[in-house]
Write a protein that binds this DNA or RNA. Sequence first.
DNA 1: AAGCCGGGGTA
DNA 2: TACCCAGGCTT
Length: 352
Amino acid sequence: MRENLKFSNTLIMWYLINQRDLPWRKSNDPYLIWLSEIILQQTRIAQGTSYYEKFASEFDDIFGLAEADEKTILKLWQGLGYYSRARNLHSTAKIVASQYKGQFPSSYNELIKLKGIGDYTASAIASIAFNQPHATVDGNVFRVLSRIFGIYTPINESKGIKEFKLLAEELLNPEDPGTHNQALMEFGALVCTPKKPKCDTCIFNHTCFALQEKSIDVLPVKLKKLKIRKRYFNYLVFDIKGGSTLLRQRKHKDIWQNLFEFPLHETIQDLQDESELEKVIKTELLIQGSYTLKKYNELPIIHKLTHQTIVTSFWIVKPMEKPRNLTSWRELENLALPVLLQNFVDKYQSTN
DNA sequence: AAGCCGGGGTA
DNA sequence: TACCCAGGCTT
């Protein structure tokens, strides 16, 4: 017990000197803590910070966020990925605004009931905003604890998850759980990094198991490799005189749910036969009369996600007759597009 | 328990 | 290229 307190004190001492100046650390407002935690799920601080600033300045409190349109929220979220976070953010904002009078619950058990809040985020909000003794176990914590204590239990199986959570709870400083949690994560991000950790200057280098046993590069243990699926997307980009195009909202349960895109023809391999597209244009999009169809990019654009590789071709369609339900390019600026499509639009706009 | 969900940075 | 990032939800 004394050892655990010593560990925490050493850690917090390091943190008070070496912590980064981050915007969400200026406040204990549960709304802002929650907002930052959702944005930072599986996201590097360098990538998430500007999004936090945008959301925090656009929506002063949870009521503003609750009253916003989902379209607005998705557009602000564009480029950050894992878009279910944005949809859940909106859903939880509405619940907290209406059922909790705008005040976040302070207990872990209430917090974890909210959409988009799991064990990690509930612990983070409870400890940082409400000083409740719950340990946060994120990727940093798995790494730091596995190395210092020499734990080889795989971190992506239930046994390991329980074991690390238990250890983190034991180590937690009940006097200041919020600072302790943030210190441990910050330490993982700045010192005990995945590759080339800074063991020379590490405050735990005399007791670190992995350093003594030279097992830094195998800890933490993670099993199973994910398989990457290859998909072939053919987008039909209508270029209508007067500055408009055809758009669809992705509604199915798949990547980019609720984001917008051009009419899509997906194939199981690289499109062989151009007449397939002609069929889509006539029978699915119900385009009357004649049109021109021209491939925009000679080489397919490769868009890599964590678990999919999207091989993409863009086809420019110019019909003689105006289709219905057009969206102006101007209007499109307010709609959330996958990065793959935003990149195309930016390029296409600049050359026309 | 396993699969799915983005985009970008690092070595 | 392979791995990782202040994870959570669905099946």
